[in-house]
Design a protein around this nucleic acid. Structure first.
Lengths: 213, 213
DNA sequence: TAGATTGTTAATCGATTAACAATC
DNA sequence: TAGATTGTTAATCGATTAACAATC
């Protein structure tokens, strides 16, 4: 036990964490069935997922919500206080910088960058906008581990290259483009078009099967 | 052939579309190997994915990029010109409203809403901000098929309920909360915390295996 | 023809889930 | 003890991929 949590499970752990966070504090125990209902999963899947963290459930009773949160946070490495840099201080970058949920999970925004000289020096949510020229030195001095790219598509690859050169190995890419990075670098893409297109498929195929049935 | 494209394939089709869109126009043919390299996939997987669309490749040559785009767009139902409503005109909602990529794939923003009376009536990217009271009638009159929730977490469930009542069956949720909706409603979540937590896991486990090896 | 690449099969791999003994 | 729920096994299901005949 305890080794190699499968990717599918890793991607569901944040969801469980969110559900636990939204529960009333009084609710001290939760069953796999309840958790599954809220998370939209199967109870056997929930139990299997949680079993990778160790066996902290109580038979006949359920899981202690406080302990479960702690176990999931440990598994995800959230105790480390990871420093994030946001590149791009437009609407999207500002929305990300303003997002309070960062701190809830032990992340902090170490630096915010923009190419626009007019924005540099201004404050967004108490954070000074830095010039792109300072990317490398601030990544180093702030100990940035994760780069969040919130630039237009055209600038994203160059920003990614600079982040990688500066030693960043985890990138969250909000720009609508496919980044090329060395294979040791983890990239996660968040893409509005992709999401809309997947919804479009379901609308499309749903409509088809509805008219068929 | 042609029936029931598996979910894993559906979720990769937008990526192929993006790669095709980023290619130089002159490049008339592309092989599954090339597409796989850029998309970060296996060439057999690419061929299998594309085979669900029908057999439009040419043996010994590859796929016609223009035809392939058309086939993928048809499979995803992107010819339909889907109307999107954005709820929340803060930084995130504004970023989404400003996003030009919508139109590239046949989506259009039919309406943009906000609770803040000070914002209502102002224009964002040529789009008037509407009061929440008009949600139902504008969804109906504009023919909104997809609701994009860009509100704070606390408002998201109520907005979702109103969208569902108004007949919307596809929701893209940017608010950091888990929505409860009837099962016929498709919800896709885009969650910053989730993405960061998954990156955190890889940093965490990568560091562990690096120190082990 | 020789070289290249598709489309598809079949093997493999991994994820989901039903079922139930263990046990609170 | 009776009822409930976990942890885990084994069956099932689905996704990935190596391999290769088909064929441009």
């Amino acid at each position: 036990m305890r080794e190699s949590i499968p990717p599918a499970t890793v991607s569901r752990l944040p969801l469980y964490l969110r559900v636990l966070g939204e529960m009333p504090k009084a609710h001290a125990m939760i069953s796999s069935e309840q958790l599954a209902n809220v998370a939209g999963a199967n109870s056997a899947q929930v139990r299997k997922d949680l079993s990778y963290l160790g066996s902290y459930g109580v038979r006949g009773v359920g899981y202690d919500t406080v302990q479960l949160r702690t176990q999931i946070e440990m598994a995800l490495g959230l105790s480390a206080d990871l420093v994030v840099a946001i590149i791009g201080a437009g609407n999207l970058g500002s929305a990300l910088a303003n997002y309070k949920g960062f701190n809830d999970w032990g992340f902090s925004v170490g630096a915010l960058f923009d190419v626009d000289a007019a924005k540099v020096g201004s404050q967004i949510d108490g954070l000074a906008v830095q010039p792109m020229s300072r990317l490398e030195d601030l990544v180093a001095s702030a100990g940035v581990m994760i780069g969040v790219i919130a630039t237009p598509a055209g600038a994203a690859q160059e920003v990614a290259d600079r982040l990688v050169s500066a030693g960043v190995t985890s990138i969250l890419n909000f720009a609508p483009t496919v980044l090329r990075v060395p294979e040791e670098v983890q990239v996660r893409r968040v893409d509005l078009s992709t999401e809309l297109q997947i919804l479009s498929f379901h609308l499309h195929s749903g409509r088809r099967s509805a008219s068929a049935g």
